[in-house]
Design a protein around this nucleic acid. Structure first.
Lengths: 247, 247
DNA sequence: CGAGCACTTGATCGCTTTCAATAGCTGTGG
DNA sequence: CCACAGCTATTGAAAGCGATCAAGTGCTCG
């Protein structure tokens, strides 16, 4: 793939996540320091980026693609506990070992910093620490939204919730207020969706079929989704249609 | 109750959460500034401290007692998304309205700061911002642990997980490495446990009875719990008994 | 003593899981 | 070109777990 060639590897100005990542608030001087210690790494879909329990030698930002945080029990039950989209931060300053597996769900490019220099820079650069706090608070909110989904929603509502999250994210990327139908490609397999939602992949498949049968969504192939009426989908998700939160 | 009289209301030195709260890393000067803007508030068990959607006029720390963050759907389904113990922080700098209900589960005393002065102080005091980042990252980890519990564990495992969390917290407060049986009082009603675990209160009651019948725990009255063998409980919780995480 | 509350226990229902078979697609090699 | 393996996804039938509905217990407080 040519994904690596889509942006300049040295200059942060052209970076697609420049305004949303941990470096968002940095001024020119700070950015120069970051540029000095950054490097890019690419991962193929399915690859494990970090194993739970490993030393974490680097932290970084997802530049393109989708990664996931997962926990696995001894008997194999797995739960996804985070979905990392472009601009999301990976790693925890001040912690030695990784608490979760980080996996590339699609092909992924990451902008990495060796942990120690990044920590030093963070301590001397309030803009970075402040932005990281903001981002962590946002992630905490997202995790808590997801606890409601996992704990209290039905399988149908869970699927509708996931679809509406993905749809909203796509809308926020394309920046336009859409009033017509929303169209996107599912970046997750049925199994990954099941791991995110605390379901089995069979139940995911059945509920997607049911939503299709009831015309809440329509499908072309297995992954290409059209949502004719977003308010209807939000209703199926059990959210009040005002849309309380954003990602 | 005399809970309010248990510590000095003006001097942070005698504060029971001095070394764990958001102010933990503050030096004497910084503490003086905080002392200038702080005030205490008490809440009775069952009282709502903050309503979801309200203006948040203050932030603060739980000094004593237990509070909970809950989300409620229109049809009444409720999910607890956070359990706030002494030293935990309430409120989000930079956000206007509260995203969740905050309720006093037991009688609660909070050390409050008006939001604006606290935000100003945070911007000028790296120690506070840094500590808040640490605490937020810890909360995020706890939320992600809980996503595994909600998404993948059985009712029995959920109860065992909650009991082991509470037991571990009590152990960490009393600071001693216990090898004998662990004894504590449940600070939550069956209903609150159900809301935390994504279960009904009937299922909570049944599973507690089952754990009692199987001698994993023993009960005196409804709330006083004895755990004869912590490793056994952790096993029932589905965690590897090394104990991966701490709170 | 009775009201109210927290909790327990029983019986039944239904949703999601489990087990199993099949379809559709892609890539590989004879 | 076709056969076949390997993967993802769909669908069916049956089982099981937790929810629901319902009754009853034990305790506290007025």
């Amino acid at each position: 793939m040519t994904v690596k060639a889509q942006f300049d590897h040295t200059n942060c100005d052209g970076c697609p996540i420049r305004h949303r990542a941990v470096c968002a608030h940095c001024d020119t001087d700070e950015l120069e320091e970051l540029e000095g210690i950054k490097y890019y790494r690419s991962f193929e879909a399915g690859q494990t980026i970090i194993w739970s329990g490993d030393q974490m030698s680097f932290v970084g930002s997802v530049v393109s693609g989708i990664a996931s945080l997962t926990q696995t029990m001894e008997d194999g039950r797995t739960q996804m506990v985070g979905l990392l989209l472009p601009s999301d931060f990976v790693g925890r300053p001040g912690r030695e070992t990784a608490p979760y597996d980080v996996q590339a769900t699609t092909d992924v490019v990451m902008c990495c910093f060796r942990k120690k220099p990044f920590e030093d820079l963070m301590n001397s650069t309030p803009h970075i620490a402040h932005r990281l706090l903001q981002m962590t608070l946002d992630e905490l909110d997202a995790a808590r939204e997801w606890m409601l989904v996992l704990g209290r929603k039905t399988a149908r509502e869970k699927i509708a919730s996931l679809l509406s999250i993905i749809a909203r994210r796509d809308a926020s990327v394309s920046q336009k207020v859409q009033s017509g139908p929303i169209v996107f490609d599912l970046p997750l397999t049925r199994e990954a969706m099941a791991d995110y939602l605390g379901l089995t992949l069979e139940t995911v498949s059945r509920q997607i079929s049911a939503l299709k049968r009831d015309s809440v969504i329509s499908l072309e192939g297995k992954r290409h989704v059209t949502i004719p009426d977003m308010a209807r989908l939000m209703d199926e998700a059990g959210d009040d249609s005002d849309g309380g939160f954003l990602i």
